[in-house]
Structure formats: structure tokens, C-alpha cells
Write a protein that binds this DNA or RNA. Structure first.
Lengths: 129, 129
DNA sequence: CCTACTGCACTAGCTCACTAAGTCAGTAGT
DNA sequence: ACTACTGACTTAGTGAGCTAGTGCAGTAGG
């Protein structure tokens, strides 16, 4: 897990995102324990409170749950929650993008063209003639 | 022109966006004078500095140019600049959305479905069978 | 018990974005 | 010249967000 202290993105959000991705990728599975606040804080060279804030975020999302004195554990539906949440984020991002394009006076056809261009960078397949 | 002081979006950005839209819609045409700092500040009930910051933003984008003692004027290429800038913003928004979807592990087909759903709210036409 | 771990809560400080007040400088009509 | 407008600049205050320091409370093993 890597953190960029020079980024404009707050540390706790970077941590939350990294853990979320790890849960989605099943690096940590439901029921398993996550690194403790202090352990992760030591590893990342940040304050334990910063790590806790990241974990708070994930707990609010239902990905993990904390047990005082014992540790932090991935929730039963943690893996699927992480994945569906990521999809929801993507959905919101598209909503925002469409609104931006609409306010620019672009037609649906033009918007579709821009979308295709954005998607094209990674596509290369999936569209057999 | 309307400003929402309760919004989490800074006032100066709201003003900049409103003026940008007005220029793109040719409410103000190239060569025409824009409302003065103090006039617009009085109308919107904000500090002239806040309006100036908005105008600074637009000047940096090349939409308008200021003449000390005379006023602010829409640049020659102001209209097209405003439009192309809006398109560029839309493009960046789609890039970001696609990256978010990719990091969620979504396939190109799934991404396309989400995009169609986001676009669908305003479409209703333009796709004659 | 006692020790060493765990998460939790309270507080403080620090930075930075935003907004505002006031002043300086250029333009133009009278 | 004078006056009334224009934008440009300096400075200051305010508030929110982020991070860290410190101590408390629960758990478990020796």
C-alpha cells in the first residue's frame, strides 16, 4: 500500500481508497482482520487518527466493522459492497459528465462521440464486427 | 444571473461559470463590454474582489480581457473559446468517469450501459429508426 | 492482576481557500 | 483641473478541513 504525501488528495482518502480497492480485490476477505490502526499508521508513517478516519469512512460505507479491543474486520458483504460502491461512484461520475456536456450545449450525438473517445483508450476489443 | 450563497461551490466560481455560459450563449458578444466589477458586485451583493477573481479566471482562459480604467470586454475568440472550453471540461469529466468505472473492474460493455443510463434522462430523440 | 495490544474520543494547531475592506492607478467627460 | 467612473493591488480576517498529540476504555494472554 502506497501513499503520496505530496498529493492534493487528503491522506485519509488515499488510505480509504487503497483499502477499498484491496477489499474489492479480495486481498482481505469477509471475516478477516485488517491491519490495526497503529500498525498501518506505523507502516505509512502517519498518525493513527488519520488511519482511523479512513476506517471510519469505510465503516460508514458498510465495508468493514470495528470491534473495540479486538480489531477491524471485513464485513460479510464487504467484497460486494466495495464493488457496488465503486459502480455507484462511476454512475455518479457519468451523471456529472453528461450534465457538463449538456450545459456546454452538446447534442446527444456529440456527447456519445466524446464518450467513445474516452472509452477507446482501453477498449480495443469487445466489438466484433 | 443568479448566485447561491448556500452552495458549497465558491461564489467566484459560480460567477465565472455564469459569465462563461453567457459568453458561450452570445449574451455578450466579442468586443462588447461586460458589467463592471462594482456594478456586478452590487447586483449580486458580493464584494468587488470576488467578482474580480471570477473575471481573472476568465481572463486566464482567454475569454475576456480587461482594460484598466475602461472596463472588461469579450475577446475576439471569446465565444468559441467558451464553447471549446466547455467541451474540454466535458471530455475530462468523461475521462475521469471511465477511469472510475475501470478501477471498479467494469467491462467496456458495462460501462457503456451506465453511460446510456446517464444519457437517457435527456435523450428521447435523435435516434430515428 | 498485569501487560500489551486493540479501537475511541477529545483537543489543539496548522494550513489554505475564500471573502472582504481599503487604497492606488488609469480613463474620460465636463 | 476636477469628478466619477474603471480595473489592480495589498492586506487582513474568517472559517473549514486535515493532521497530530494525548489519554481513556475494552479485550486477551501470561
Amino acid at each position: 500500500m502506497k501513499i503520496d504525501p505530496g498529493s492534493h488528495v487528503p491522506i485519509y482518502l488515499q488510505i480509504a481508497e487503497a483499502v477499498r480497492a484491496a477489499v474489492a480485490a479480495e486481498v482481505y476477505r469477509p471475516g478477516e482482520a485488517l491491519p490495526s490502526l497503529r500498525a498501518l499508521a506505523l507502516q505509512l508513517q502517519v498518525n493513527p487518527n488519520t488511519v482511523q478516519r479512513a476506517y471510519d469512512e469505510l465503516e460508514r460505507e458498510g465495508l468493514i466493522h470495528a470491534q473495540r479491543g479486538k480489531g477491524l474486520f471485513v464485513s460479510e458483504r464487504g467484497t460486494t459492497s466495495a464493488q457496488s460502491r465503486a459502480e455507484q461512484t462511476a454512475h455518479q461520475a457519468f451523471d456529472k459528465a453528461v450534465r457538463a456536456a449538456r450545459s456546454a450545449g452538446m447534442t446527444a450525438r456529440q456527447i456519445r462521440t466524446v464518450f467513445d473517445a474516452a472509452l477507446g483508450d482501453n477498449e480495443k476489443r469487445e466489438n466484433p464486427s
